[in-house]
Design a protein around this nucleic acid. Structure first.
Length: 266
DNA sequence: CTCAGTGTTCAGTG
DNA sequence: TCACTGAACACTGA
């Protein structure tokens, strides 16, 4: 379920368990789709013996800093996660790579539907796909004025614009719907028509939602009960919010969009 | 058996 | 070139 909060949670997990440790071994699955531009075995031999100094993230992209380049970079696609465990017996289903450090800690990246990617890059932040990302709402939220300028140039529906990673890095489908619901903005509104007050509201909701989701380690059961999140799954025709307002479903920019007509007026 | 899907990329169109 | 749309990708689980 990887959007910004999930990926940030895994970044912190990786840093907590791996930073300052040396890689003793790397196991890989021979998957030519998920391993992008690098043979799995070459990926493994490149990492072996290196020390992990930090874990970084921008948007939904995550990478490790090592004591020597190149560095590994991960994207999870629609599925996948990081898992940390101690015994090979606990290797998770759909694992693609497992990194074991000298103290026996193991971290696996899983990717069931194979839309994720594992790369080896000399300088991840300055190379695609990371160099193409826009601002990250957890790391560097722009001012309302700058945001207004960006949105003024966009003709498409605000929902679609929120999903544009070259503008809002890390915002995914549920986050976009949640922000628009809490900011009371209709998902079809052309981005350039948002009033300055609406842009300011969208910005502050985006920041608050991302911070809260990260604070609870992206554990959906700890999201506030007032969030649309809890009512958007399954496209149930009888879905209502915690206040009893009907939840509607439509497709915008090819993505399922949940919204609340009583709150989000055109 | 059918089909939606928490993502990204790329071809095609205007 | 830009802005935008829709299909393709690959596979699980409902």
């Amino acid at each position: 379920m990887p959007e910004l909060p999930e990926v940030e949670t895994w970044r912190a997990l990786a840093e907590r368990h791996l930073a300052g440790k040396r890689i003793a071994s790397v196991a890989t699955v021979p998957d030519p789709i998920v391993f992008s531009g690098i043979a799995p075995r070459r990926f493994a031999s490149s990492l072996r013996g290196r020390e992990i100094t930090a874990a970084h993230r921008r948007g939904k992209q995550l990478w490790f800093a090592l004591d020597r380049r190149p560095w590994p970079a991960f994207h999870f696609g629609m599925t996948g996660s990081f898992r940390v465990y101690q015994s090979r017996r606990d290797r998770p289903r759909f694992w693609k790579v497992e990194i074991r450090t000298e103290d026996g800690t193991r971290l696996a990246m899983t990717n069931a539907r194979r839309l994720g990617r594992i790369r080896l890059l000399d300088d991840p932040p300055t190379e695609p796909p990371i160099s193409r990302l826009g601002f990250d709402p957890f790391l560097d939220l722009p001012t309302a004025a700058r945001l207004r300028t960006s949105l003024e140039a966009r003709r498409g529906p605000i929902k679609t614009v929120l999903l544009d990673q070259s503008l809002f890095a890390g915002v995914g489908n549920w986050l976009a719907d949640e922000v628009l619901y809490q900011a009371r903005i209709h998902p079809q509104r052309p981005a350039y028509t948002l009033l300055p007050s609406e842009v300011a509201c969208l910005r502050s909701k985006l920041r608050a939602i991302v911070r809260k989701a990260v604070a609870v380690e992206a554990d959906a059961s700890r999201f506030p009960t007032t969030w649309l999140f809890h009512h958007r799954w399954g496209k149930r025709p009888d879905a209502v919010t915690s206040r009893g307002d009907r939840v509607a479903f439509t497709t915008i920019g090819g993505r399922t969009t949940a919204w609340v007509p009583a709150v989000q007026k055109q």
